[in-house]
Design a protein around this nucleic acid. Sequence first.
DNA 1: TTTTGAGTTGTTCGA
DNA 2: GTCGAACAACTCAAA
Length: 473
Amino acid sequence: MKTIVWFRQDLRIADNAALSEACKTGEIIPVFILDEKDRPLGAASKWWLHHSLSALSRSLGGLILRKGDPLEILRELADEAGAQAIYWNRSYEPHSIQRDTKIKKQLNEQSGLEVKSFPGSVLYEPWEIETGSGGPYKVYTPFWKSIQARGFPSPLPKPQIKLVEEYTHSANLESWNLLPSNPNWADGWETLWQPGERGALSRMEEFLKAGIQGYGELRNRPDLPNVSRLSPHIHFGEISPRTLVAMSSFHAEKHPETAGDVHKFQAEIAWRDFANHLLYHFPSIPEKNWKPAFDYYPWREDKHQLEAWQKGKTGYPMVDAGMRELWHTGYMHNRIRMLVGSFLVKHLQMHWKHGEAWFWDTLLDADLANNTSSWQWIAGSGADAAPYFRIFNPFTQGPKFDPNGEYIRKWCPELAELPNKYIHAPHEAPALELRAAGVELGTNYPHPIVNHKVARERALSGYEAVKQAGNNG
DNA sequence: TTTTGAGTTGTTCGA
DNA sequence: GTCGAACAACTCAAA
């Protein structure tokens, strides 16, 4: 039998249920379809996708690329290639669910194809985990406990792949223009990232070797190499959560001193499951405040301040460093994501959707479930959200998590010469210190665009409207 | 059905 | 400098 394997956000060979099952039936026809009706990919995601597809194609020995409506393309392809079956791994995004359900029905009923879907890139599928009374979880901790009680599922072994010999035509990857040009803002990213399954695996191995020890604490330090930086690999499904959990558990057995850190890492993997769980059960999360009372929050609109945030010119070094790291590498350290998120939503009082959109465009790991639920979390409107009065103070977080100012010096080189004492708050430095460091506020580094204390109080008072709405039902 | 304990990531203020 | 309380009240999840 010939089976089409439709690759989506599972650009890997290992622990790929659809691929494994298809390989058991005979020859396979691997295809990736660029679905233009989907939420348009962000620019950074496009870069990653290009390289990940090219890597997958190499390791499979061929991959058919098509652009357009998946239903039509799959029907055509099955016809051209004489396939009898189509397999894929499930996605839990609202648009995908709708699309896939329709495709399954139509291809099955009208074309007589065997259409099967399999568990996607999660530990457990969103409906497999439920509360004692049978509903979805809305709080992370009990969700995580529930996963632990079930135990971690094991990854599947690598399948023996046999591709169909005669290939139907494939689009040329270059013709999709996923890579930037004029200007090529991703210049040099090949040295930072290695998209693809092999790169994902070696990143994980490197993390276990050099990052996991102390992860529980040090993962908060943007100046240290203790976070996994696996997020883009995970988003594109180059390595599965089950594999990550299995690899880290194995590591903990060999190095018992890292058991606590490994547990923490696995809890982070479960956060991703939680985001998918939420998105599946509450599909309006990307669009609407999860807590409706937040519809009454008095958001501000300020193009200039939004732009200052995007470009890393807020005058808050920790925020600016983060935003520039994002722009220059397609990535931002998790601790700093919270900080810049809090800053946009609270200090600048701008709607979380502005932040979500910018992250969507610039993050290599932009992921619908994670991105939208995290923005709602930081805004306070989301599930299990931070209390509204939890407003990060960038001037406090700086010394706490970047004590030597190394992260700032890296991304805000104009501040590099400032002593540690002032590097987190240049506006408080004496004129003499500023001059000695070559910093001219308002010229080569901005004054803070808002005053911390004032902004904090304004944000807090904004929540009065939410509270009122909450009280009135 | 009711009760109970708890809830990722913080900051500020005053003793 | 350190420490604990206040910030607010509500909803969740399980017993």
